[in-house]
């Protein structure tokens, strides 16, 4: 077992474990945030596993998760808008900590991969992860606020 696999194991045990508790208990507003964070953590763990097993093709799993994970959270932001409007998520610490973890994982992986297409792919996955996760967290927080802010966004959507 090398360091990458140990890091993945630690991330799964210490990161995904608590989010499981967050998703299984408490009000909906905490559950959706925990689900969003879990997506990012599992994606990072998959990247570490790919490097740990020395199988560059396993990175595709993380790539798919990086594009679909935020879409999954946006599903909840859209369809649970009622619940979230009544009680929007407040704490941002967890989301920020998870987002800050991304460069800590992706940059060493890029260094290990060396310059080339593999490193570019890793950087792209990291960028997708951070952007998607922050937008999804914002959508969860803002699901209730848009009615006050809403300046006819539907019109812009048609363009």
């Amino acid at each position: 077992m090398n360091g990458w696999l140990a890091a993945a194991a630690a991330l799964l045990a210490c990161g995904v474990g608590p989010t499981l508790w967050g998703v299984a208990t408490g009000p909906v507003r905490r559950r959706v945030v925990a689900q969003n964070t879990a997506t990012l953590l599992v994606c990072l763990a998959t990247l570490l596993l790919a490097q740990g097993y020395d199988r560059s093709s396993y990175v595709d799993v993380a790539l798919v998760l990086a594009v679909l994970g935020p879409a999954g959270t946006l599903v909840y932001a859209r369809l649970l808008a009622e619940d979230l409007k009544a009680a929007p998520p407040t704490g941002r610490a967890g989301t920020w900590a998870a987002v800050a973890l991304t460069p800590l994982v992706v940059v060493p992986l890029c260094v290990a991969a060396g310059p080339g297409r593999a490193a570019l792919k890793l950087l792209a996955i990291g960028a997708l992860l951070v952007a998607g996760n922050m937008v999804a967290a914002r959508a969860l927080r803002g699901a209730g606020r848009t009615d006050c802010e809403g300046a006819g966004p539907a019109e812009a959507a048609r363009g």
Binding site: D60, L63, V64, V67, L68, P70, A71, L74, A77, R78, L128, A131, G132, V135, R138, A139, G142, R145, T146, D147, E149, G150, P153, A154, E155, A156, A157
Partner: peptide, 26 residues
């Protein structure tokens, strides 16, 4: 019409082609 905050909508419009390309790549 649905009311979605502008950053989320912008993200979706950029993410759509990326996701589509990832799907075709897979």
């Amino acid at each position: 019409p649905a009311r979605v905050s502008p950053p989320v909508r912008r993200y979706a419009l950029y993410a759509l082609p990326v996701t589509l390309v990832v799907g075709l790549y897979v």
